[in-house]
Design a protein around this nucleic acid. Structure first.
Lengths: 135, 135
DNA sequence: TTAAATAGGACTGTTTTGCTCATGTTTCTA
DNA sequence: TAGAAACATGAGCAAAACAGTCCTATTTAA
């Protein structure tokens, strides 16, 4: 369950939007606020739009906004929208990729840890996150 | 907490040895049995020897063996021996690497998930693993 | 002496990651 | 209706990580 920087950027972006849902924000403003390279974020946003997590509005005064209420979006789906399903070891997602997994004593542990992480990330929604303040 | 293939190889190797502790096995034999490229495993073994997890004996009839009892070796230390400490996001290990981590709402989640994984991997020792049979 | 083993270092090819750029399209507004 | 401010799309690129090989020691049992 490695999270790429790209997915982290996506999370930050959604988090930013979740703090002012319904508001339309420009990618540039979000990039500045969240310390993300602007044109890179633009690419990331494209994917989030395409899968229907964000809505975009073109033209002057355009920008992006959440397509759903923050509490209806969880951490896992944002991460997987960018990097697909992942695990500590590929075999935990796709056992066929590993010639040993059927007889491997370690395999069940990868599966278990993935399950725990997935559960936790699914439980965390962006309404919670938006409320949460840093320590 | 991504686990590289290299670390996985290390785990398989230690697991193999844990099934016949005290026995001296050649790297070649282990490589064959565990489907690991031989010369690659040789490099991996070097590191495990250097940090004192394995003992090696040179010369004809030489090979490697565990330096401790299987139940005194846990999964985490083998993995970290190869790839160092890891997490879903670097900031969970080293908060200074991230300019946001102090105020980031997501950061505590990375930390929490890392703690869970580390705990679990530490709890699993190679005596358990060696006994364990595939589903 | 020789063969079988580890030790060590240099090196290489591939993939992933992180990111930029150029160009096009849409739409508000003056 | 022109122009500026947005997003959309695809190509491309550099650096790092990853996976692995190879060659040359060195050691040691037989």
């Amino acid at each position: 369950m490695y999270v790429t920087r790209q997915a982290d950027y996506a999370v930050r972006c959604v988090l930013y939007l979740a703090r002012a849902p319904h508001r339309i924000e420009s990618v540039g403003a979000i990039a500045r606020a969240m310390h993300i390279p602007r044109s890179f974020l633009a690419k990331i946003v494209q994917r989030l739009v395409k899968i229907g997590l964000l809505r975009s509005l073109r033209g002057v005064q355009g920008g992006i906004q959440l397509a759903r209420r923050p509490r209806a979006i969880n951490l896992l789906e944002v991460i997987e929208a960018i990097q697909g399903p992942s695990a500590m070891r590929e075999c935990a997602v796709n056992p066929r990729d590993c010639c040993l997994s059927a007889t491997c004593a370690v395999h069940p542990i990868w599966v278990e840890l993935r399950r725990v992480a997935v559960q936790r990330l699914k439980r965390e929604n962006f309404a919670q996150l938006a409320r949460r303040r840093a320590r």
